[in-house]
Amino acid sequence: MNDHAATGAAVDDSTVVLGIETSCDETAVACVRGGREVLSSVVSSQVDLHARYGGVVPEIASRAHNELIIPVLARAMLEAGLDGEDVDAVAATTGPGLIGALLVGVSAAKALALAWDVPFVSVNHLEAHLYAGFLEDPDLQFPMVVLLVSGGHTLLVHVTDHGRYRLLGQTLDDAAGEAFDKVARFLGLGYPGGPAIDSVAMSGDPEAIRFPRSMIDDGLDLSFSGLKTAVVNHVRANPQVATEDVAASFQQAVVDVLVAKARRAAESTGAVALALGGGVAANSLLREQFLGACAEDGLHAFLPSRELCTDNAAMIASTGWYRLRRDGATPLDCGADPNERLAPSS
């Protein structure tokens, strides 16, 4: 067996981790030194393959990952100027995500770790989104609250230290990104819905329609399916309504809820910092209002650049570095878990 698996080799600022991410529809490989220094980060998006279906098709995603994994890997190593001997550990997303897609990245990562005789590290995709903010901001502060919003997830997490998480709240139905996709599809704006609504909303009036802010004063859980229904009903009742105004008003309702919940979560836990992560964190209005809220409440704001909000492997490699330092290597008989949760509460 791999020696590293038992001992957990020394992990320091010179340790290079190669990260692999294939949980959904991005095939991504990155090389990160010391958990922070991004040497390369290559993301190959399959968005065009899935666009006509209005969402990610698991079998198509799995096939594409299998075709793209080696070219993306080769490019990430070339851009970083690394050979196999320079890689000290290989990390991969083991969940949550699409099982067939995850297995491609996990299989590749374990094979590389075996061939290069270095540790393999399993990384939780949600944990990695939390770490995305740290990659660009060295001023790490605990305790913090992370608002994680993507097409698959909407969660509020209390983070008291590396690897110490507590789930504060989550969506009870649709993820925020899912609501963007569904509303965009209904409005005929195409896929993916987030960027489509973001750009159309720029020329709309966010106050034009008062859509419901579901559960806004009510705990830390969230709900978006009522909002989606309200949009559909409003457009059916008012066929002449301007799409720009619907998009802007819908987006405003989502952002109002997300920001209000994040602020309340920070206040109730005594957090000193607030972080945003996940694909929906690329939304212009959310970014603007998130920063405004942090400034008003005196919270340190972690706001990753747009490239690090959406799925990427730099966040996987970075998380892998912290995880390797904390827990050592993951055994090579590890598989993938489509429903993998964040580490249990602490």
Binding site: A74, G100, L103, V104, A108, A111, L112
Partner: peptide, 19 residues
């Protein structure tokens, strides 16, 4: 089996790449 094949092919390609 699609899933089995992808595990085998991804593993094999990655080994061949690394070696």
């Amino acid at each position: 089996l699609f899933t089995g094949l992808r595990v085998g092919v991804a593993t094999a390609k990655s080994l061949a790449f690394a070696l």
